[in-house]
């Protein structure tokens, strides 16, 4: 279906153009880069570690995605519904699927761009020492997949409401659950009752699945986990949108 692909592309292009026509995109990228720098060097102890790696960079990603990604995703559907352009979009000859995927891909690309702009870190660490660039690449890949998962969840909550703030808050809460499920203080607490419970809960956590990537291990289960979160969230977005239209 080449026309399906063309439609996804047209919608994604429009969405991306929309980002860059307002200062929001630039503000977001600047904040993302500043936070990355601050956490990596000041809090993460990049220099004190005395090793050539980006561990102190990637370890913060689950946490600052928690706020940054819902900020990107909150407007996706809430804004279309509030302004009424949803009616325009869904009466054009495109399927709801093409619209959902197109909009998602656009914002994922945008996050990918912000992430890509941290490449000076890679240069720095290569200049200072000789890191394992394979590990770094795996880290970027994992981070991108994780960003996609946060984004898909924000996309879902954005379809729930016309109000961007409400959409943002619900997304943060949902993502927080998915982080905490694997956050050591929480898992240690749960471990007092049952180890199997810990494993079950932790298997739903972003942190657990992101760990492997940070160590340079590409486990297909981790990749599948993130892709399933994305798939499931986008599917649910479709169901929610259909529900609204049915009244």
């Amino acid at each position: 279906m080449s026309s399906a692909f063309a439609n996804v592309k047209t919608i994604a292009k429009r969405e991306l153009a929309g980002y860059f026509s307002s200062p929001v995109a630039y503000v977001f990228i600047v904040i993302f880069l500043l936070l990355s720098g601050f956490f990596t060097f000041m809090v993460g102890g990049f220099f004190e570690r005395g090793e050539a790696s980006l561990v102190s960079f990637f370890m913060w990603h689950p946490w600052f995605y928690l706020f940054l990604v819902p900020a990107v995703g909150m407007r996706l559907w809430a804004e279309e519904r509030r302004v009424g352009t949803l009616e325009l979009l869904l009466t054009m000859p495109v399927t709801a699927w093409q619209a959902i995927v197109g909009k998602f891909v656009a914002s994922w690309l945008f996050l990918g761009l912000a992430l890509g702009l941290t490449f000076p870190l890679v240069i720095t660490v290569n200049y200072l020492g000789s890191p394992d660039n394979g590990v770094i690449l795996a880290g970027y890949l994992g981070s991108l997949l994780m960003a996609g998962s946060y984004l898909a969840i924000s996309c879902l909550t954005s379809a729930l409401t016309r109000n961007q703030v409400v959409s943002f808050i619900i997304a943060v809460v949902l993502c927080l659950f998915l982080i905490l499920a694997g956050f050591p203080p929480v898992t240690n607490l749960l471990a007092r009752w049952s180890v199997t419970l810990v494993e079950l809960v932790a298997s739903f956590s972003f942190i657990t699945h992101f760990e492997g990537f940070q160590k340079g291990v590409l486990d297909s289960r981790d990749v599948i986990f993130f892709l399933s979160v994305i798939g499931f969230s986008l599917f649910t977005t479709g169901v929610i949108l259909r529900g609204h239209r049915a009244g």
Binding site: T10, K13, G18, T85, L88, T91, M92, P93, V94
Partner: peptide, 30 residues
């Protein structure tokens, strides 16, 4: 839907685009 042109009530349009950008998009999606 291919056969229809539709002007919804209150004339919604993507506010983050220029008029030309918006019309280009509408043409392309058709």
């Amino acid at each position: 839907k291919r056969l229809i042109g539709y002007l919804p009530e209150n004339a919604p349009a993507y506010t983050d685009m220029t008029v030309q950008g918006f019309l280009n998009f509408a043409a392309e999606i058709r």
